[in-house]
Design a protein around this nucleic acid. Structure first.
Length: 868
DNA sequence: ACTCTGCCCAGAGGA
């Protein structure tokens, strides 16, 4: 329906492939020498960084800050500016001569995203220069001088003055980025601080074209990581990578050498290279290489299916609740408390959005509103949202755009989890003792070893305190503690619903701590980490909570690195190192464990991983790499790790480490005494999932009922379904909470689909009787419970979601006293797990706790709801 | 065609 002609010629225009893939300037310049390394660099996050680099970073910061304050007492700027004025751009054959003088510094560390060129980057310094063009003519025209001003990118280098191809290419790319914000400079500056010499770098078309060609090649490899070969046994394969270069010197120093060797196939290498590459992987067996190849491909599959930069193409995202438009700054930004970085900006919402899927703590991107607006003028973290205002912590000041500028806020999904997963995989293949042992356990399935006698591990001094902690636990919980203490390798703790997983983990950490062991506590989500820590804090066990303060529970902020440094007024490196080393208990998310410098300094006796059945296999390895022994706590009968890519799922990417290691029954201990559900609700789950394993912890739990003190006042028709539903001996409905006497906060509504959550929310928000009512998806309810739960299955004849019996199991095991299931039975019978549930309900005829209503009653709920 | 949590990050310098 709509076509446009674009003309690209020898002299004009560029072809940019996959412009939504924004590649950084350094990624592109790094590919000049070796394209293969650049592709690996995007897959495996580089973890290297030595002294020289740290020094470089510090020097950059000193110079940039001095530049902003115009205070160069630390650096001899005079010398530098003098050098600047002497420079001349070396355009060959030009009759012009230029003199440059820097008049002003416009910005530092300006971050620019350019979907036009498919590039992104940070400009060290942006300078305003006066350019004098002297015509080198003859006679009268000789000294005619024209002065014009231009804003140019300036790249700082603190190392040896090389004026290398890579450095110049970086500047050239920055002239392209500059075009997103101002007129094309056509020229950039390269300043070496060691010598004070500045090189002007003209952006010539030939160079630009070559660099964009390189960018396109990297983008191609990133977008097409796997290819289909239907004729082969395994239909999907990694796409062929850029060739291995023939440079022994470069390869020897390459930070991606091990990954390059792990991925290489014999046919793509020649003899010289084989020696170097084989050295990297000679410690690995065939099985190890197969494991690597398998999981590497799974990561590539899921990465290939991941969405592109949504901000540039998703026009519906405002309606879908994924962005807020029309934001205006409310006053100037505040600098956060002492030592903090960034700008604290409150923004006013012009119009309320009914739905909004970005929450506090999320990474965000702010762009200028409107079609012509600049993308990503600031990035940061969302601190709080109300209907009227949005509070953000941003990396740059929006003041420069003026008070009337409007902005658009998006969730930043650019973060790429593949890096963390592959970092776990790559480290598993390292030639170290710790990785070697982990490979034996995880890849080769070596049976886990256990000691015989507790006396061999329990220090005599700790006996009493350990006994005291054990007193508070039930039999299977005590069994689990014993197993962990005796373990030499690992233990798997199966925590069925409501069996006190958090209490168990808390006690476990206390016991290990009492025995003098160091513990690394990890989980997938921040909230799960904090759950355990909140309990642990009550027993006065000291710990360090790694992670950004905004993501950490308020009550635990004093235990973060920032908090501890503040209270102990830590200011030197040795004090900080001491803090890292002396903390017996350290807690973090799995991803956090791949980032922090603490982990390059120390190892832990034990690693305890909560939610382990929900963590991707490779991500779970990340904290384990830093410990001698580990404990995984989870329940593989609840939801597995979320894998979005259907390809990757089909190939088994949702297998958690917990699941993989479960084959060793000796390592498994089950927590099967539960304190959440009454007998009827528990029986349901026992029948469908746990085969009678679950038992109630006490008589009180067995017979517990939902208390509805005002039920009799309702005067319901004796035969009505509502009467049935509200009968404490039978089932539950949330309707008139006020009058029936159940607090809305005690009720949870669960649905499989977000749309249904929205629909129920719209009916209940703002109503007094629904104060505190929690409505959420099955997935989000995992790990939680409520006195009463209403599950709305939603009428649906197709879809994969309800076919997962683990999801059904989670939905059915959240209620303590009351469980009401709503759905259309003929439609739901299409789902095998739910059909089993319905059979169970049928055969128990009078089972009052399961009330499966026909869809028409769901309509009735809405009517009654309105009446109330 | 549903389910969604993590990541500060692009670049610090060396041959």
């Amino acid at each position: 329906p709509f076509t446009t002609d674009f003309k690209i010629s020898h002299d004009f225009g560029f072809l940019v492939l996959w412009p939504d893939v924004l590649l950084s300037g350094t990624t592109v310049t790094g590919a000049i020498r070796c394209l293969r390394r650049a592709v690996f660099g995007e897959h495996f996050k580089g973890g290297d960084g030595g002294r020289a680099m740290l020094l470089g970073t510090i020097l950059h910061e000193v110079f940039q800050n001095a530049a902003v304050r115009r205070d160069f007492s630390l650096i001899s700027l005079k010398q530098i500016t003098l050098e600047m004025e002497k420079q001349k751009p070396g355009e060959k054959g030009s009759l012009e001569e230029c003199n440059l003088a820097v008049c002003d510094i416009t910005d530092i560390e300006e971050s620019i995203w350019s979907p036009r060129f498919g590039l992104k980057g940070k400009l060290d310094v942006t300078v305003k220069v006066a350019v004098q063009r002297c015509r080198r003519g003859s006679g009268l025209q000789k000294n005619r001088v024209a002065t014009l001003e231009a804003v140019l990118p300036l790249e700082l280098k603190t190392g040896r003055e090389s004026n290398s191809l890579e450095h110049r290419a970086q500047v050239i790319l920055y002239t392209l980025l500059s075009q997103e914000r101002r007129t094309e400079p056509g020229l950039g500056l390269l300043l070496y601080l060691k010598t004070g010499v500045m090189h002007p770098v003209p952006a010539q078309r030939l160079d630009l074209r070559e660099l964009i060609k390189i960018r396109n090649q990297i983008a191609h490899h990133l977008v097409n990581p796997v290819e289909w070969r239907p004729s082969t046994a395994q239909e999907v394969h990694p796409s062929s990578l850029p060739p291995i270069i023939l440079d022994q010197g470069t390869c020897q120093r390459c930070s991606q050498l091990r990954n390059c060797a792990l991925v290489h196939s014999p046919e793509e290498t020649n003899k010289d290279q084989v020696v170097l590459l084989e050295q990297q992987i000679q410690h690995l067996s065939e099985a190890h290489l197969t494991y690597f190849a398998h999981w590497y491909m799974l990561c590539l599959c899921s990465h290939g299916d991941a969405p592109m930069l949504a901000i540039t193409y998703d026009l519906c995202r405002e309606i879908a609740g994924r962005c807020i438009r029309g934001l205006k700054c409310q006053g100037p930004a505040k600098q956060p408390s002492a030592g903090g970085r960034g700008f604290h900006q409150r923004m006013i919402r012009q119009k309320p959005t009914h739905m909004f899927l970005i929450s506090a703590g999320d990474r965000i991107v702010l762009s200028q509103d409107g079609d012509a607006g600049s993308l990503a003028v600031a990035t940061g973290t969302l601190l709080a949202v109300t209907d009227e205002v949005v509070d953000c912590l941003l990396d740059s000041d929006l003041a420069r755009y003026g008070p009337s500028a409007t902005f658009c806020l998006d969730r930043d999904d650019s973060g790429n989890s593949m890096n963390s997963h592959l970092s776990g995989l790559s480290h598993l293949m390292a030639d170290t003792q710790a990785s070697c042992r982990l490979r034996e356990l995880i890849v080769d399935f070596s049976p886990p070893r256990f000691l015989e006698r507790l006396a061999d591990v329990l220090p005599p001094g700790a006996k009493d305190s350990v006994a005291k902690i054990l007193q508070g636990l039930n039999r299977p919980q005590r069994q689990a503690m014993k197993r962990v203490l005796l373990s030499q390798d690992y233990t798997l703790v199966v925590g069925m619903p409501g069996t006190g997983k958090t209490t168990t983990i808390c006690s476990l950490v206390r016991i290990l701590h009492a025995c003098g062991f160091s513990v690394l506590l990890a989980s997938f989500t921040h909230s799960a980490v904090d759950n355990v820590l909140l309990k642990l804090a009550r027993f006065h066990v000291p710990f360090l909570r790694l992670g950004h303060a905004e993501k950490v529970h308020e009550a635990l902020r004093s235990n973060t690195e920032e908090g501890l440094c503040h209270t102990r007024s830590i200011s030197t490196l040795s004090q900080l190192t001491q803090l890292y080393n002396e903390q017996a208990v350290v807690a973090t998310t799995c991803m956090g464990a791949s980032q922090h410098p603490l982990f390059s300094r120390r190892r832990f006796d034990f690693c305890v991983v909560d939610e382990a059945s929900q963590i991707g296999q490779l991500l779970c390895l990340v904290p384990l790499l830093h410990s001698e022994r580990f404990v995984l706590v989870g329940d593989h009968l609840q939801l597995p790790p979320l894998v979005l890519s259907t390809k990757a799922k089909a190939l088994g990417m949702h297998e958690s480490l917990f699941k993989r290691l479960e084959r060793h029954a000796t390592a498994v201990v089950q927590l099967n005494i539960q304190y959440r559900m009454n007998r009827e609700i528990m029986s349901l789950s026992n029948e469908l999932t746990y085969q009678g394993c679950l038992t109630c912890g006490s008589e009180r739990v067995v017979n517990s009922r939902l208390c509805l003190p005002h039920l009799h006042d309702l005067a319901l028709d004796p035969g009505s379904w509502l009467k049935e539903a509200l009968d404490p001996e039978k089932s539950v409905v949330f309707l008139d909470t006020d009058q029936a006497g159940c607090r809305a906060a005690d009720i949870g509504v669960i649905a499989p689909y977000r749309q249904q959550i929205q629909a129920v929310s719209e009916l209940t928000t703002g109503r007094d009787w629904a104060q505190g009512l929690e409505i959420n998806t099955v997935d989000k309810y995992q790990g939680r419970d409520k006195p009463a739960i209403i599950v709305s299955f939603v009428r649906s004849d197709q879809g994969e979601l309800l076919k997962d019996w683990r999801r059904l199991n989670v939905a059915l095991t959240r209620a303590k006293f009351k469980l009401l299931l709503l759905g259309c039975t003929p439609a739901l019978r299409n789902y095998e797990p739910i059909a089993r549930l319905l059979d169970y309900a049928d055969t128990h005829g009078l089972i009052s706790f399961v009330l499966v209503l026909n869809i028409k009653y769901v309509m009735k709920v809405h009517v009654i709801d309105a009446a109330l």
